[in-house]
Amino acid sequence: MAEVLKKIKFEKWKGWLYLSPAIILLLIFTVWPIFNTIRMAFLEDFNTLQASRGAVFEIGFKNFEKVIGYKDFLTCLGNTMILCVLTVPLSTILALVIAVCLNSIKFLSRFIQTIFFLPYVTNSIAIGMVFAAMFNIVGSFLGTDNQIVQTWGIVNEVLRAFGMEPINWINSGSDYWANIWVMVIYIVWNALPFKILILLGGLQSVNKQYYEAAKIDGTSRIRTFTRITVPLLSPMIAYVVITGFIGGFKEYSSIVGIFGDGMGPAGEKGKLNTMVGYIYDSLSLHQGRASAAALILFGIIFIVTMINLYVSKKKTHY
């Protein structure tokens, strides 16, 4: 009897033993930082330098008040919101259309799917630099005879070919909305592969007989798409939208990719800064405010995701 009890006791602990590597790593690198962030956010004017000297901080909401009161923070929040609202629907709709098209292609389908997936495996900073070159208003270099040769970025080159005025997309003195559109195009392009992958997978798992039944009933292509494909794909669409919003609120590296870590065109530092960018900026001196901003970002993502889940629960068919 004692033997059996001992065995049961061991069996009970064996599970925890097997999980321990993962649990220990999670505790150190996830749970503790989260706890620490919350702690720092509520210690007024916390910074690590003073903390190391043994300063004592009062508990309160001062960090939050300061963060919200900053004009910079509101710019960051606005930029993030605008990018999210523009890129998530656009990339989802485009990905859906492309996925449906890809799914109907028979010839070289695997090869074409691979090409569409390439941006996903390419470094986003590298892509950003290529985009920056494409949208550049002017590039200049020394020609062979030491004269200065001026070139346009390819986008403006194309605009000129159609007889339109070149637009100052990203250079110094450029318009805010020009900047935003460059970002939107870049972010959408970057976000497409993953969404296409998910939606294409969903499409391929849809029972072909639904389409045969629709065909026999004389359903038009558009109606088949809106009344059958989209509802049947709705769980995947919901997933793509939710992860899209979460990713959108964490937008940072794409801005760096195009504008560099100044987060704006030359001479306008921080013009296109985002929430994550703000957190990074505050991190060196005001860890308390950075933590507060991180918690605010968490709160926003949480609320938006809840809204998303609520809407998708009503609209999705599982």
């Binding site: 007989q209 039944a213 009933d217 359903t219 009344r227 509802p231």
Partner: peptide
Amino acid sequence: ESRGIGLVFQNYALYPH
């Protein structure tokens, strides 16, 4: 669709949504 047929599939293929 132009033949005027009704087809019942083996697994019925009812639109689940």
